[in-house]
Amino acid sequence: MTEKPIAWGYMRLRDDTDDQELLLIEDRLHDYAEAHGLRLVHTHYEDGPGISPSRLVRRLIRDDVRHVIVPSLVQISEHPLLQLLVSEAISLDAGALLYETSESHGRADVR
Rank of each mutant, 00 (worst) to 15 (best):
I69V: 09
V86R: 00
E26D: 04
D15H: 11
Y45G: 00
L29R: 01
E34R: 06
V41D: 08
P53T: 01
Y45P: 09
D63S: 13
L92Y: 07
T2H: 02
R62C: 12
E78V: 00
D16G: 10
A35Q: 14
L73Q: 04
I6H: 15
E88G: 03
S102T: 15
V70D: 03
E26A: 06
Y10K: 00
L81E: 00
L98E: 09
V74N: 08
E103T: 14
H42M: 07
Y32P: 07
I90V: 15
D63H: 15
R66E: 13
L40T: 03
A7K: 00
V65H: 01
R28W: 05
E100P: 01
V57Q: 04
G106W: 06
V110E: 10
G50I: 04
A108R: 12
L23F: 09
S102L: 06
G37I: 06
R62H: 15
R28H: 07
A33N: 01
T101S: 02
V68P: 04
V74H: 08
A7T: 09
P49M: 11
S91K: 11
R107F: 14
L60W: 02
G37F: 02
D93H: 14
S87Y: 10
R66K: 15
V65E: 08
A89Q: 12
R66C: 10
D19N: 11
L98Y: 01
H36G: 07
R58C: 12
A35V: 05
E34T: 02
L85E: 12
G95H: 06
E3D: 10
D31G: 13
I51L: 11
E21C: 08
R58E: 12
